[in-house]
Nucleic acid binder design. Structure first.
Lengths: 165, 165
DNA sequence: TATTGTTATACTCTATAACTATA
DNA sequence: TATAGTTATAGAGTATAACAATA
């Protein structure tokens, strides 16, 4: 019959602490779950989730250099090169030399890029809602706010260490 | 001089929505940051963070099959095989045939495994605290609780989809 | 026929190093 | 000498398929 060993001897209860109290476990499971629900939303963008975040970053603010852009979305400059190649080939971004520093290239989002981004944004919103489905509205908002706060300082510290990506 | 193009024209303020409002960005940055602060804490465990989570799962409850264990920590059974090989070679776990189902093997943590786990747990706690450093105690507790809640249902849905890992 | 564990294989992501052109 | 971008390469992490033993 079905194994279901849990039914046999339930003598081993949650003896204090288990996986669910591990922050690393939560992060791992949520990362996987978000990838699961969001992959389809960005499937038609070059680079998938990475391409999406690049477009989001480009949609607001000054046209950044490739390096600055990579730091915003935690992508190595070597990855940025071919990711931007793909986005440019599809007409979602353009690159032009920075007049102030001829080593650098400014990255700009195109109208087509904005259009695709807006469509993807709607799909991503649905995916996010699915991920947080069993939180009520205030809890979901609180979780988003706390995550954003931790992520913001995490990014700052990533720039300090600045060893790898 | 240093480029610091941000100093030049600061005309591009956060015009409404940017990366920080993206849940996917927060998750991405936090995953990377946690890996950064926690890798050292589990460096002497076979499999690093994955080995650590396996030990945590084994430390409480009934000895699970390799498959059940993999589902708890979101690892494919093909990965479990050599991860457990490594943990067993170091004497942190043992495997024995399940008397009720001779296809399956029960995985047990050893005394040495518990000892190493306890030491790693202390180091991980410090790393977690570093990650959440700029939250006060109530906010940190709230974030942990919300993450655990989302992670728990995320895991349940992973078992349903059960296509990949 | 379906499932557990194993092995082998391929694909993606990430990390490192070397090169160019500018500064 | 140091930096932005490119290219090539190697290494993890993950996924897929095939197999043996058992249900």
């Amino acid at each position: 019959m079905s194994n279901s060993s849990s039914a046999a001897a339930d003598a081993g209860p949650p003896e204090g602490i288990g996986l669910e109290s591990e922050l690393g476990w939560s992060i791992r499971m949520i990362s996987a779950a978000f990838r699961r629900v969001a992959t389809g939303s960005v499937a038609d963008l070059p680079g998938g989730a990475r391409g999406y975040l690049v477009l989001v970053a480009l949609a607001s603010g000054e046209p950044p250099s490739q390096l600055a852009l990579g730091r915003q979305v935690h992508l190595d400059r070597t990855v940025m090169t071919y990711l931007l190649d793909d986005l440019e080939a599809r007409g979602l971004i353009t690159r032009r030399p920075d007049p102030r520093d001829r080593r650098a290239r400014q990255v700009l989002i195109t109208d087509e890029g904005r259009a695709q981004l807006d469509r993807a944004r709607g799909r991503i919103s649905l995916a996010e809602a699915r991920l947080l489905a069993d939180l009520d509205e205030p809890d979901a908002r609180r979780l988003r706010e706390l995550l954003a706060r931790v992520a913001r300082t995490a990014q700052r510290e990533a720039l300090v260490s600045e060893g790898g990506c």
